[in-house]
């Protein structure tokens, strides 16, 4: 070894003491059997959760008003998705970490246009329905200022929306085709056809549920179900599981930051929490290189318990 001074938090003394018998294969086998038995016992006793997925059909039948209101917000550009920004659209610049606009720099890579993707294109896929076709034609031939005039008029009347005899009724005066579009989309959703229209947007095969999930998340129905199960962000939901099952308890620290200031009050909470966790992860990773921190175990002396037989001698 070199003549440098011994650094107790970096160097380890060379072991000159005795050795005891150690059967590594036997130890591994015992561990596998014990963990295996424990896994089987826990599974037999507790099982695992499997709450069925929510469909747009289920949502529109359980709460047609919420669905129709969400559809109107999509047209109006006031839904969460419509105002999201990157990676879905240019409506916002996304969150900022100090001066860094990470989301904006990454760009719009998964383009979503709520008006056409969630409302117009699905309606256009419906088989020939003369009234709907007329109203779709009216919509697509109108200028964007005319369209937004209709939508504004419709959205103003949304608080008075009712659901009567299977139809969405909104007392509008100058909403153009919007009433027919929203009502037809609601019918489509209640029949289950919208679920298909949203996922098959890319072709015959699909494994991508970005659009129906974004649409579902824009309503209040999914969030309401989640709040019942204590799964929302302010309920430490990230680490929770449906029912009484333990969840991703190892996310406790990530979840914790969302509950306290300045994170809980920030519009950049997500990126701040991520930045914090990245920094803390780096500290954990590079702990052996950080003077002070790497001295903690030597100073708190828990090691004396672990190696007590050694120190007794």
């Amino acid at each position: 070894m070199s003549k440098k001074a011994f650094r107790p938090d970096v160097d380890a003394p060379t072991w000159r003491g005795g050795h005891s018998p150690y059967d590594i294969i036997k130890e591994g086998t015992i561990a596998l059997v014990v963990v295996g038995v424990l896994t089987v016992l826990l599974s037999v006793f507790f099982g695992s959760p499997d709450e069925a997925a929510v469909t747009v059909k289920k949502w529109a039948n359980a709460n047609p008003i919420d669905f129709a209101t969400t559809a109107a917000n999509e047209l109006n550009g006031t839904s969460l998705t419509a105002g999201y920004g990157p990676p879905y659209n240019h409506a916002a610049i996304g969150q900022k970490l100090g001066p860094l606009s990470l989301a904006k720099w990454a760009g719009v890579r998964i383009p979503i246009n709520p008006v056409s993707d969630f409302v117009i294109k699905p309606l256009e896929s419906m088989p020939s329905q003369p009234v709907l076709q007329q109203n779709l034609a009216m919509w697509s031939s109108a200028s964007s200022s005319t369209q937004s005039g209709w939508v504004t008029d419709y959205v103003k009347a949304v608080p008075k929306m009712t659901f009567v005899n299977g139809h969405v009724v909104v007392p509008t005066t100058n909403a153009g085709p919007v009433s027919v579009l929203v009502d037809n989309l609601t019918q489509m959703a209640r029949s289950g056809a919208l679920d298909q229209a949203l996922v098959t947007g890319g072709g015959y095969y699909t494994t991508d549920y970005t659009k129906p999930l974004l649409f579902l998340a824009d309503g209040t129905y999914l969030a309401g179900l989640a709040a019942n199960q204590h799964l929302t962000g302010t309920q430490w939901g990230m680490m929770n599981e449906t029912g009484q099952y333990p969840g991703q308890a190892w996310l406790w620290l990530y979840t914790f930051w969302y509950q306290i200031r300045p994170y809980s009050a920030s519009t950049n909470a997500d990126v701040l929490v991520w930045g914090t966790m990245m920094a803390l992860s780096a500290v954990l990773l590079f702990l052996p290189l950080i003077p002070g921190l790497r001295a903690i175990p030597r100073k708190v002396k828990v090691y004396r318990l672990i190696w007590r037989e050694h120190y007794q001698q």
Partner: peptide, 17 residues
């Protein structure tokens, strides 16, 4: 069965299942 609605401990900012 652990499928029915869970129990939660709420203490100041801490909320844990």
């Amino acid at each position: 069965p652990l499928d029915h609605l869970g129990h939660y401990i709420h203490w100041h900012v801490i909320l844990i299942s």
